[in-house]
Nucleic acid binder design. Structure first.
Length: 114
DNA sequence: TTAGTGACTGCAT
DNA sequence: CATGCAGCCACTA
């Protein structure tokens, strides 16, 4: 595992920790801020893994580009994520999507990579 | 080193 | 709108 790769995951976890309560970010957003605009899928993998390793990361605040919760088979986990978000004031419509225009996290700081 | 995987995404249908 | 699908890429075995 190269240094560059581990830096990516570290950035991802750090960024997710920056998302304040009540706001959400998409996998694509995190990937972009972490330096790899097209690694949204990889971000999803990291979020899934953050559950296994005991790391204090607000993984529930990361959703897909449609404003919906992504899951593959793990219904319980998806429901938990939805409850956590609703507890933070985020509501979902009938199709299970929230309003990204309203709740999307906009980082004020500037991130850079080398 | 290589091949397989998936909590993604945007565009086509 | 909802589905399907190819492209993408960090991570793993």
């Amino acid at each position: 595992m190269s240094r560059r790769l581990s830096e990516f995951s570290d950035r991802v976890y750090w960024l997710v920790c920056q998302i304040p309560t009540g706001l959400v970010a998409t996998y694509g957003q995190i990937a972009t801020y972490a330096g790899s605009p097209r690694a949204a899928r990889a971000v999803g993998n990291l979020m899934k893994r953050s559950l296994e390793i005991d790391r204090e990361v607000p993984w529930h605040r990361v959703i897909n580009a449609k404003g919906a919760i992504s899951f593959k088979g793990d219904t319980a986990r998806a429901e938990l994520q939805r409850r956590l978000l609703e507890a933070e004031g985020i509501s979902f419509d009938d199709s299970g999507r929230c309003d990204l225009e309203t709740h999307r996290w906009q980082p004020r700081e500037v991130f850079w990579y080398d």
